[in-house]
Design a protein around this nucleic acid. Structure first.
Length: 407
RNA sequence: GGGGAGAUACCCGAGUGGCCAAAGGGGACAGACUGUAAAUCUGUUGGCGAAGUCCUUCGGAGGUUCGAAUCCUCCUCUCCCCA
Protein backbone atom coordinates (compact mmCIF):
# COMPACT_ATOMS: atom_id res chain seq x y z
CA UNK A 1 0.00 0.00 0.00
CA UNK A 2 1.23 3.40 -0.94
CA UNK A 3 1.41 6.36 1.34
CA UNK A 4 -1.66 8.46 0.82
CA UNK A 5 -0.82 11.49 -1.26
CA UNK A 6 -2.33 14.86 -0.77
CA UNK A 7 -5.59 15.30 -2.65
CA UNK A 8 -4.38 17.94 -5.09
CA UNK A 9 -1.52 15.86 -6.36
CA UNK A 10 -3.76 12.83 -6.55
CA UNK A 11 -6.07 14.82 -8.76
CA UNK A 12 -3.18 15.78 -11.00
CA UNK A 13 -2.10 12.17 -11.40
CA UNK A 14 -5.61 11.04 -12.11
CA UNK A 15 -6.30 13.72 -14.66
CA UNK A 16 -3.64 12.52 -17.04
CA UNK A 17 -5.17 11.09 -20.21
CA UNK A 18 -8.79 11.87 -19.37
CA UNK A 19 -11.44 13.57 -21.45
CA UNK A 20 -14.29 14.50 -19.13
CA UNK A 21 -14.46 14.75 -15.40
CA UNK A 22 -17.98 15.48 -14.23
CA UNK A 23 -17.35 17.31 -12.10
CA UNK A 24 -13.78 18.05 -11.26
CA UNK A 25 -14.63 20.05 -8.11
CA UNK A 26 -16.63 17.14 -6.81
CA UNK A 27 -13.73 14.80 -7.42
CA UNK A 28 -11.41 17.08 -5.52
CA UNK A 29 -13.89 17.29 -2.65
CA UNK A 30 -14.23 13.55 -2.54
CA UNK A 31 -10.47 13.11 -2.56
CA UNK A 32 -10.11 15.64 0.23
CA UNK A 33 -12.75 13.98 2.36
CA UNK A 34 -11.23 10.58 1.67
CA UNK A 35 -7.86 11.89 2.75
CA UNK A 36 -9.26 13.55 5.86
CA UNK A 37 -11.30 10.61 7.00
CA UNK A 38 -8.83 8.04 5.80
CA UNK A 39 -11.57 6.33 3.85
CA UNK A 40 -10.75 5.12 0.33
CA UNK A 41 -13.04 6.12 -2.52
CA UNK A 42 -15.05 3.43 -4.18
CA UNK A 43 -14.08 3.54 -7.83
CA UNK A 44 -16.23 1.58 -10.18
CA UNK A 45 -15.49 0.19 -13.57
CA UNK A 46 -17.95 -1.99 -15.42
CA UNK A 47 -16.71 -4.59 -17.86
CA UNK A 48 -19.06 -6.37 -20.18
CA UNK A 49 -17.72 -9.76 -21.09
CA UNK A 50 -18.98 -9.56 -24.65
CA UNK A 51 -15.79 -10.80 -26.26
CA UNK A 52 -13.14 -13.20 -25.02
CA UNK A 53 -10.25 -10.76 -25.14
CA UNK A 54 -9.30 -7.53 -23.50
CA UNK A 55 -7.35 -5.27 -25.80
CA UNK A 56 -5.16 -2.27 -25.14
CA UNK A 57 -8.12 -0.03 -25.97
CA UNK A 58 -10.46 -1.26 -23.32
CA UNK A 59 -7.51 -1.59 -20.99
CA UNK A 60 -7.27 2.20 -20.82
CA UNK A 61 -9.93 2.66 -18.13
CA UNK A 62 -8.53 -0.40 -16.41
CA UNK A 63 -5.16 1.30 -16.23
CA UNK A 64 -6.89 4.33 -14.81
CA UNK A 65 -8.52 2.14 -12.22
CA UNK A 66 -5.13 0.77 -11.40
CA UNK A 67 -3.93 4.32 -10.77
CA UNK A 68 -6.73 4.79 -8.27
CA UNK A 69 -5.83 1.49 -6.70
CA UNK A 70 -2.21 2.54 -6.38
CA UNK A 71 -3.34 5.70 -4.66
CA UNK A 72 -5.03 3.56 -2.07
CA UNK A 73 -8.61 3.67 -3.29
CA UNK A 74 -11.00 0.78 -3.51
CA UNK A 75 -11.36 -0.64 -7.00
CA UNK A 76 -14.80 -2.05 -7.64
CA UNK A 77 -14.96 -4.13 -10.75
CA UNK A 78 -18.38 -4.95 -12.06
CA UNK A 79 -18.57 -7.93 -14.29
CA UNK A 80 -21.57 -7.05 -16.37
CA UNK A 81 -22.78 -10.54 -16.93
CA UNK A 82 -26.31 -9.21 -17.12
CA UNK A 83 -25.63 -6.05 -19.10
CA UNK A 84 -23.62 -8.15 -21.52
CA UNK A 85 -26.83 -9.94 -22.37
CA UNK A 86 -28.09 -6.65 -23.73
CA UNK A 87 -24.88 -5.41 -25.30
CA UNK A 88 -23.78 -1.82 -24.96
CA UNK A 89 -25.29 0.23 -27.78
CA UNK A 90 -22.79 3.06 -27.29
CA UNK A 91 -21.04 4.03 -30.48
CA UNK A 92 -22.52 1.14 -32.32
CA UNK A 93 -24.49 1.45 -35.49
CA UNK A 94 -26.50 -1.67 -35.14
CA UNK A 95 -28.08 -3.87 -32.53
CA UNK A 96 -25.67 -6.37 -31.12
CA UNK A 97 -26.68 -9.96 -31.06
CA UNK A 98 -27.78 -10.96 -27.59
CA UNK A 99 -25.26 -13.30 -26.10
CA UNK A 100 -26.16 -16.51 -24.38
CA UNK A 101 -25.57 -16.98 -20.70
CA UNK A 102 -22.89 -19.58 -21.43
CA UNK A 103 -20.92 -17.32 -23.73
CA UNK A 104 -21.02 -14.53 -21.21
CA UNK A 105 -19.84 -16.70 -18.35
CA UNK A 106 -17.04 -18.16 -20.44
CA UNK A 107 -15.91 -14.66 -21.39
CA UNK A 108 -16.18 -13.47 -17.80
CA UNK A 109 -13.77 -16.16 -16.74
CA UNK A 110 -11.07 -15.24 -19.25
CA UNK A 111 -11.64 -11.56 -18.45
CA UNK A 112 -10.68 -11.99 -14.84
CA UNK A 113 -7.49 -13.77 -15.76
CA UNK A 114 -6.63 -10.94 -18.11
CA UNK A 115 -7.59 -8.22 -15.67
CA UNK A 116 -5.11 -9.78 -13.29
CA UNK A 117 -2.38 -8.62 -15.65
CA UNK A 118 -3.34 -5.05 -14.75
CA UNK A 119 -5.06 -4.83 -11.38
CA UNK A 120 -4.13 -6.25 -8.05
CA UNK A 121 -7.06 -8.61 -7.81
CA UNK A 122 -6.51 -9.33 -4.14
CA UNK A 123 -7.43 -5.72 -3.42
CA UNK A 124 -10.25 -5.50 -5.93
CA UNK A 125 -13.89 -5.93 -5.16
CA UNK A 126 -15.45 -8.01 -7.89
CA UNK A 127 -19.19 -8.07 -8.33
CA UNK A 128 -21.44 -9.62 -10.92
CA UNK A 129 -24.43 -7.51 -11.76
CA UNK A 130 -26.64 -10.55 -12.22
CA UNK A 131 -26.65 -10.47 -8.43
CA UNK A 132 -29.24 -7.75 -8.45
CA UNK A 133 -30.71 -7.90 -11.92
CA UNK A 134 -31.54 -11.58 -11.64
CA UNK A 135 -33.82 -10.81 -8.73
CA UNK A 136 -35.41 -7.73 -10.12
CA UNK A 137 -39.15 -7.88 -10.69
CA UNK A 138 -41.04 -6.22 -13.47
CA UNK A 139 -42.42 -3.52 -11.21
CA UNK A 140 -38.93 -2.47 -10.25
CA UNK A 141 -37.94 -2.39 -13.87
CA UNK A 142 -40.88 -0.13 -14.56
CA UNK A 143 -39.85 2.15 -11.75
CA UNK A 144 -36.36 2.34 -13.19
CA UNK A 145 -37.47 2.99 -16.76
CA UNK A 146 -39.79 5.78 -15.62
CA UNK A 147 -36.67 7.75 -14.75
CA UNK A 148 -35.61 8.07 -18.35
CA UNK A 149 -37.27 9.84 -21.22
CA UNK A 150 -37.27 8.89 -24.86
CA UNK A 151 -36.18 12.37 -25.87
CA UNK A 152 -33.13 12.09 -23.71
CA UNK A 153 -32.22 8.75 -25.14
CA UNK A 154 -32.60 10.08 -28.66
CA UNK A 155 -30.31 12.98 -27.89
CA UNK A 156 -27.50 10.54 -27.93
CA UNK A 157 -25.53 10.59 -31.12
CA UNK A 158 -25.45 6.90 -31.74
CA UNK A 159 -29.17 6.48 -31.30
CA UNK A 160 -30.17 9.58 -33.21
CA UNK A 161 -27.95 8.55 -36.07
CA UNK A 162 -29.36 5.10 -36.18
CA UNK A 163 -32.82 6.55 -36.00
CA UNK A 164 -32.09 9.01 -38.80
CA UNK A 165 -30.64 6.41 -41.11
CA UNK A 166 -33.41 3.97 -40.43
CA UNK A 167 -31.24 1.47 -38.65
CA UNK A 168 -33.24 -0.54 -36.13
CA UNK A 169 -33.03 0.27 -32.45
CA UNK A 170 -34.42 -2.39 -30.19
CA UNK A 171 -36.25 -1.30 -27.10
CA UNK A 172 -34.04 -3.32 -24.80
CA UNK A 173 -31.08 -1.22 -25.85
CA UNK A 174 -32.65 1.71 -24.08
CA UNK A 175 -32.35 -0.26 -20.89
CA UNK A 176 -28.61 -0.48 -21.07
CA UNK A 177 -27.66 2.90 -19.60
CA UNK A 178 -30.23 2.44 -16.88
CA UNK A 179 -28.77 -0.88 -15.94
CA UNK A 180 -25.29 0.52 -15.87
CA UNK A 181 -26.50 3.43 -13.77
CA UNK A 182 -28.25 1.13 -11.39
CA UNK A 183 -25.00 -0.74 -10.86
CA UNK A 184 -23.62 2.48 -9.43
CA UNK A 185 -26.48 2.65 -6.97
CA UNK A 186 -25.93 -0.92 -5.90
CA UNK A 187 -22.20 -0.55 -5.27
CA UNK A 188 -22.47 3.00 -3.96
CA UNK A 189 -19.67 4.20 -6.18
CA UNK A 190 -17.90 7.50 -5.63
CA UNK A 191 -16.32 7.55 -9.05
CA UNK A 192 -17.09 5.67 -12.21
CA UNK A 193 -14.64 5.22 -15.05
CA UNK A 194 -15.29 4.54 -18.68
CA UNK A 195 -14.44 5.44 -22.25
CA UNK A 196 -15.85 8.72 -23.57
CA UNK A 197 -18.59 6.79 -25.30
CA UNK A 198 -19.76 5.82 -21.82
CA UNK A 199 -20.32 9.36 -20.64
CA UNK A 200 -24.07 9.18 -21.05
CA UNK A 201 -24.37 6.00 -19.00
CA UNK A 202 -22.07 7.39 -16.35
CA UNK A 203 -24.28 10.45 -16.05
CA UNK A 204 -27.36 8.29 -15.78
CA UNK A 205 -25.59 6.70 -12.84
CA UNK A 206 -25.39 10.10 -11.19
CA UNK A 207 -29.10 10.74 -11.70
CA UNK A 208 -30.09 7.37 -10.36
CA UNK A 209 -27.90 7.69 -7.31
CA UNK A 210 -29.51 11.04 -6.57
CA UNK A 211 -32.94 9.46 -6.94
CA UNK A 212 -31.93 6.78 -4.50
CA UNK A 213 -30.69 9.32 -2.00
CA UNK A 214 -27.00 8.78 -2.59
CA UNK A 215 -24.29 11.28 -3.32
CA UNK A 216 -23.76 11.21 -7.09
CA UNK A 217 -20.62 9.62 -8.43
CA UNK A 218 -18.01 11.51 -10.36
CA UNK A 219 -17.89 10.47 -13.99
CA UNK A 220 -14.40 10.21 -15.38
CA UNK A 221 -13.85 9.26 -18.99
CA UNK A 222 -10.81 8.27 -20.97
CA UNK A 223 -10.27 8.60 -24.73
CA UNK A 224 -11.08 5.87 -27.14
CA UNK A 225 -8.14 4.44 -28.93
CA UNK A 226 -8.17 4.00 -32.68
CA UNK A 227 -7.48 0.51 -33.85
CA UNK A 228 -4.35 -0.45 -35.70
CA UNK A 229 -6.13 0.31 -38.98
CA UNK A 230 -5.86 3.91 -37.89
CA UNK A 231 -9.39 5.15 -38.34
CA UNK A 232 -11.98 3.19 -36.42
CA UNK A 233 -12.23 2.62 -32.72
CA UNK A 234 -10.30 -0.40 -31.57
CA UNK A 235 -12.65 -3.29 -31.26
CA UNK A 236 -12.74 -7.00 -31.34
CA UNK A 237 -15.31 -7.14 -34.08
CA UNK A 238 -13.28 -4.98 -36.45
CA UNK A 239 -10.21 -7.12 -35.91
CA UNK A 240 -8.10 -4.01 -35.50
CA UNK A 241 -7.06 -4.61 -31.93
CA UNK A 242 -4.01 -5.58 -29.92
CA UNK A 243 -5.05 -8.08 -27.28
CA UNK A 244 -3.24 -7.87 -23.98
CA UNK A 245 -2.74 -11.62 -23.86
CA UNK A 246 -1.46 -11.89 -27.38
CA UNK A 247 2.04 -13.20 -27.95
CA UNK A 248 4.72 -10.53 -27.49
CA UNK A 249 5.79 -10.88 -31.12
CA UNK A 250 2.23 -10.30 -32.25
CA UNK A 251 1.80 -7.27 -30.06
CA UNK A 252 5.07 -5.87 -31.25
CA UNK A 253 4.28 -6.42 -34.91
CA UNK A 254 0.81 -4.98 -34.64
CA UNK A 255 2.15 -1.94 -32.84
CA UNK A 256 4.70 -1.46 -35.61
CA UNK A 257 1.92 -1.43 -38.14
CA UNK A 258 0.13 1.62 -36.83
CA UNK A 259 0.27 4.92 -38.66
CA UNK A 260 3.03 7.28 -37.64
CA UNK A 261 0.45 9.91 -36.69
CA UNK A 262 -1.03 7.62 -34.12
CA UNK A 263 2.17 7.11 -32.15
CA UNK A 264 1.58 9.92 -29.73
CA UNK A 265 -1.83 8.69 -28.75
CA UNK A 266 -0.64 5.14 -28.33
CA UNK A 267 2.26 6.30 -26.22
CA UNK A 268 0.05 8.25 -23.86
CA UNK A 269 -2.76 5.75 -23.60
CA UNK A 270 -1.13 2.39 -23.99
CA UNK A 271 2.25 2.70 -22.31
CA UNK A 272 3.83 3.90 -19.10
CA UNK A 273 6.42 5.98 -20.90
CA UNK A 274 6.56 9.40 -19.30
CA UNK A 275 5.60 12.54 -21.14
CA UNK A 276 9.09 13.96 -21.38
CA UNK A 277 10.45 10.88 -23.04
CA UNK A 278 7.49 10.78 -25.44
CA UNK A 279 8.19 14.33 -26.55
CA UNK A 280 11.83 13.49 -27.06
CA UNK A 281 11.01 10.50 -29.21
CA UNK A 282 8.51 12.31 -31.32
CA UNK A 283 10.68 15.36 -31.82
CA UNK A 284 12.01 16.03 -35.27
CA UNK A 285 15.28 14.35 -35.87
CA UNK A 286 14.34 11.08 -34.27
CA UNK A 287 13.65 8.50 -36.90
CA UNK A 288 9.99 7.52 -36.76
CA UNK A 289 10.89 3.90 -37.03
CA UNK A 290 12.98 4.13 -33.92
CA UNK A 291 10.21 5.88 -32.05
CA UNK A 292 7.72 3.29 -33.14
CA UNK A 293 9.99 0.44 -32.12
CA UNK A 294 10.23 2.00 -28.68
CA UNK A 295 6.47 2.32 -28.59
CA UNK A 296 6.03 -1.31 -29.53
CA UNK A 297 8.51 -2.34 -26.83
CA UNK A 298 6.73 -0.25 -24.24
CA UNK A 299 3.40 -1.86 -25.01
CA UNK A 300 4.83 -5.35 -24.81
CA UNK A 301 6.68 -4.44 -21.62
CA UNK A 302 3.49 -3.37 -19.92
CA UNK A 303 1.91 -6.76 -20.29
CA UNK A 304 4.79 -9.18 -20.64
CA UNK A 305 7.75 -7.53 -18.96
CA UNK A 306 11.08 -6.16 -20.09
CA UNK A 307 12.66 -9.38 -21.23
CA UNK A 308 9.81 -10.37 -23.51
CA UNK A 309 9.81 -6.88 -24.92
CA UNK A 310 13.43 -6.88 -25.96
CA UNK A 311 13.13 -10.37 -27.36
CA UNK A 312 10.18 -9.27 -29.45
CA UNK A 313 12.14 -6.30 -30.71
CA UNK A 314 15.10 -8.48 -31.70
CA UNK A 315 12.82 -10.93 -33.40
CA UNK A 316 11.14 -8.21 -35.38
CA UNK A 317 14.45 -6.87 -36.60
CA UNK A 318 15.61 -10.30 -37.54
CA UNK A 319 12.56 -11.04 -39.67
CA UNK A 320 11.78 -7.68 -41.18
CA UNK A 321 15.08 -5.88 -41.31
CA UNK A 322 17.52 -8.70 -41.84
CA UNK A 323 14.93 -10.85 -43.59
CA UNK A 324 15.97 -13.90 -41.68
CA UNK A 325 13.81 -16.65 -40.32
CA UNK A 326 11.93 -16.12 -37.09
CA UNK A 327 13.13 -18.06 -34.10
CA UNK A 328 9.88 -19.88 -33.58
CA UNK A 329 8.23 -21.35 -36.64
CA UNK A 330 4.96 -23.20 -36.51
CA UNK A 331 4.95 -26.70 -37.97
CA UNK A 332 2.69 -27.93 -40.71
CA UNK A 333 2.05 -31.60 -40.42
CA UNK A 334 1.62 -33.36 -43.72
CA UNK A 335 0.07 -36.82 -43.43
CA UNK A 336 2.18 -39.25 -45.41
CA UNK A 337 -0.90 -40.27 -47.36
CA UNK A 338 -0.94 -36.87 -49.02
CA UNK A 339 2.35 -37.56 -50.72
CA UNK A 340 2.73 -39.26 -54.07
CA UNK A 341 6.29 -40.47 -54.67
CA UNK A 342 7.41 -37.97 -52.08
CA UNK A 343 5.78 -35.12 -53.96
CA UNK A 344 2.93 -32.83 -53.18
CA UNK A 345 0.96 -30.31 -55.19
CA UNK A 346 2.05 -26.85 -54.11
CA UNK A 347 -1.52 -25.63 -53.87
CA UNK A 348 -2.36 -28.50 -51.56
CA UNK A 349 0.58 -27.68 -49.32
CA UNK A 350 -0.64 -24.12 -48.88
CA UNK A 351 -4.02 -25.39 -47.83
CA UNK A 352 -2.59 -27.95 -45.42
CA UNK A 353 -0.49 -25.19 -43.93
CA UNK A 354 -3.58 -23.10 -43.40
CA UNK A 355 -2.24 -20.26 -45.53
CA UNK A 356 -5.00 -20.61 -48.08
CA UNK A 357 -8.60 -21.68 -47.74
CA UNK A 358 -9.31 -22.81 -51.29
CA UNK A 359 -7.33 -23.93 -54.29
CA UNK A 360 -8.09 -20.67 -56.04
CA UNK A 361 -6.89 -18.76 -53.05
CA UNK A 362 -3.65 -20.74 -53.04
CA UNK A 363 -3.17 -20.28 -56.79
CA UNK A 364 -3.62 -16.58 -56.35
CA UNK A 365 -0.86 -16.44 -53.76
CA UNK A 366 1.47 -18.35 -56.03
CA UNK A 367 0.80 -16.32 -59.17
CA UNK A 368 1.21 -13.12 -57.21
CA UNK A 369 4.66 -14.18 -56.20
CA UNK A 370 3.93 -14.51 -52.51
CA UNK A 371 5.07 -18.07 -51.98
CA UNK A 372 8.60 -19.18 -51.16
CA UNK A 373 10.02 -22.60 -50.33
CA UNK A 374 13.39 -22.57 -48.60
CA UNK A 375 13.86 -19.06 -49.87
CA UNK A 376 13.05 -19.85 -53.51
CA UNK A 377 9.96 -18.40 -55.09
CA UNK A 378 7.40 -20.86 -56.36
CA UNK A 379 5.89 -19.50 -59.56
CA UNK A 380 3.92 -22.36 -61.05
CA UNK A 381 0.56 -23.10 -59.48
CA UNK A 382 0.66 -26.55 -61.05
CA UNK A 383 3.96 -27.46 -59.47
CA UNK A 384 4.33 -30.72 -57.63
CA UNK A 385 7.08 -30.08 -55.20
CA UNK A 386 9.38 -32.58 -53.59
CA UNK A 387 8.76 -32.54 -49.89
CA UNK A 388 11.87 -32.62 -47.79
CA UNK A 389 11.29 -32.67 -44.05
CA UNK A 390 12.03 -29.42 -42.33
CA UNK A 391 11.66 -27.29 -45.43
CA UNK A 392 10.51 -23.76 -44.78
CA UNK A 393 7.40 -22.42 -46.38
CA UNK A 394 7.00 -18.68 -46.48
CA UNK A 395 3.88 -16.88 -47.59
CA UNK A 396 3.80 -13.16 -47.92
CA UNK A 397 6.20 -11.29 -45.74
CA UNK A 398 5.38 -12.68 -42.41
CA UNK A 399 3.85 -16.11 -42.49
CA UNK A 400 6.22 -19.01 -42.03
CA UNK A 401 5.84 -22.73 -41.51
CA UNK A 402 8.15 -25.71 -41.19
CA UNK A 403 7.02 -28.75 -43.09
CA UNK A 404 6.86 -32.02 -41.18
CA UNK A 405 5.72 -35.37 -42.60
CA UNK A 406 3.88 -37.75 -40.30
CA UNK A 407 2.16 -41.09 -40.74
C1' G B 1 -55.03 -1.31 -38.42
C1' G B 2 -54.01 1.55 -43.41
C1' G B 3 -50.35 3.19 -47.07
C1' G B 4 -45.31 3.34 -48.99
C1' A B 5 -39.99 1.81 -49.34
C1' G B 6 -36.43 -1.89 -48.88
C1' A B 7 -33.18 -6.85 -48.13
C1' U B 8 -27.22 -7.47 -53.48
C1' A B 9 -20.50 -10.64 -52.08
C1' C B 10 -16.57 -9.69 -45.56
C1' C B 11 -18.97 -4.41 -44.98
C1' C B 12 -21.21 -0.12 -47.50
C1' G B 13 -23.47 0.33 -52.10
C1' A B 14 -24.70 0.47 -57.95
C1' G B 15 -27.36 -2.60 -60.99
C1' U B 16 -34.69 -3.06 -63.04
C1' G B 17 -34.75 -9.26 -68.76
C1' G B 18 -29.20 -11.40 -72.00
C1' C B 19 -23.07 -7.32 -72.70
C1' C B 20 -23.68 -9.93 -64.77
C1' A B 21 -19.61 -13.97 -60.96
C1' A B 22 -22.41 -8.60 -60.63
C1' A B 23 -19.84 -1.13 -61.16
C1' G B 24 -17.65 1.92 -57.17
C1' G B 25 -15.70 2.48 -52.24
C1' G B 26 -13.90 0.33 -47.64
C1' G B 27 -11.53 -3.86 -45.66
C1' A B 28 -8.37 -7.98 -46.54
C1' C B 29 -4.42 -10.37 -49.23
C1' A B 30 -0.09 -10.17 -52.68
C1' G B 31 3.77 -7.30 -55.20
C1' A B 32 7.03 -2.85 -55.84
C1' C B 33 9.34 0.73 -52.93
C1' U B 34 11.62 1.59 -47.85
C1' G B 35 11.66 3.33 -42.43
C1' U B 36 8.15 -1.53 -40.86
C1' A B 37 3.19 -5.23 -40.53
C1' A B 38 4.21 3.34 -41.69
C1' A B 39 3.06 6.22 -46.13
C1' U B 40 2.67 5.79 -51.49
C1' C B 41 1.91 3.01 -56.03
C1' U B 42 0.24 -1.64 -58.62
C1' G B 43 -2.50 -6.06 -58.72
C1' U B 44 -5.98 -9.70 -56.66
C1' U B 45 -10.49 -10.34 -53.90
C1' G B 46 -17.11 -17.11 -55.37
C1' G B 47 -15.73 -22.38 -56.34
C1' C B 48 -13.88 -26.50 -59.20
C1' G B 49 -6.04 -29.88 -60.08
C1' A B 50 -7.40 -23.37 -64.51
C1' A B 51 -11.18 -25.97 -67.49
C1' G B 52 -16.03 -25.03 -69.34
C1' U B 53 -21.74 -22.93 -74.21
C1' C B 54 -19.17 -25.79 -65.94
C1' C B 55 -21.18 -25.28 -60.80
C1' U B 56 -22.97 -22.15 -56.69
C1' U B 57 -24.20 -16.91 -55.30
C1' C B 58 -28.21 -10.95 -55.28
C1' G B 59 -33.44 -12.37 -47.94
C1' G B 60 -36.53 -17.60 -48.37
C1' A B 61 -39.94 -20.81 -51.31
C1' G B 62 -42.41 -21.34 -55.83
C1' G B 63 -43.69 -19.39 -60.90
C1' U B 64 -43.31 -16.70 -65.96
C1' U B 65 -39.44 -16.79 -69.87
C1' C B 66 -35.10 -19.63 -74.73
C1' G B 67 -32.87 -16.64 -70.69
C1' A B 68 -34.16 -13.72 -63.95
C1' A B 69 -30.34 -9.95 -59.07
C1' U B 70 -33.97 -7.67 -62.46
C1' C B 71 -40.98 -9.68 -63.95
C1' C B 72 -45.21 -12.41 -60.93
C1' U B 73 -47.14 -15.01 -56.26
C1' C B 74 -46.55 -16.30 -51.29
C1' C B 75 -43.41 -16.11 -46.90
C1' U B 76 -39.61 -13.92 -43.42
C1' C B 77 -37.25 -9.59 -41.68
C1' U B 78 -36.41 -4.10 -41.61
C1' C B 79 -37.48 1.12 -42.23
C1' C B 80 -40.81 5.39 -43.08
C1' C B 81 -45.63 7.96 -43.08
C1' C B 82 -50.72 7.95 -41.23
C1' A B 83 -53.95 6.01 -37.14
Amino acid sequence: MMMPQDPKSQLETLKRGTIDIVREEELLEKLQRSYRENRPLRVKLGLDPTAPDIHIGNAIPLQKLKKFQELGHQAVLIIGDYTALVGDPAGVNKTRPMLSREEVMANAKTYLQQVGKILDLSRTEIVYNSQWFEEMGFSEILRLTSKMTVARMLERDDFSQRYATGTPISLHEFLYPLMQGYDSVMVRSDVELGGTDQLFSLLVGRDLQRDFGQEPQVALTTPLLEGIDGNKKMSKSLCNYIGITEEPAQIFGKAMSIKDDLMKKYFVLATDVDDGRIDELLAHGVHPRQAKAELARAIVRRYWGEEAASLAAQEFDRVFKAHELPEQIQEVIIPRGELKDGRLWMVRLLILAGFATTNSDARRLITQGGVHLDGKEVTDPKADIEVTPGMILKVGRRRFARVVVKD
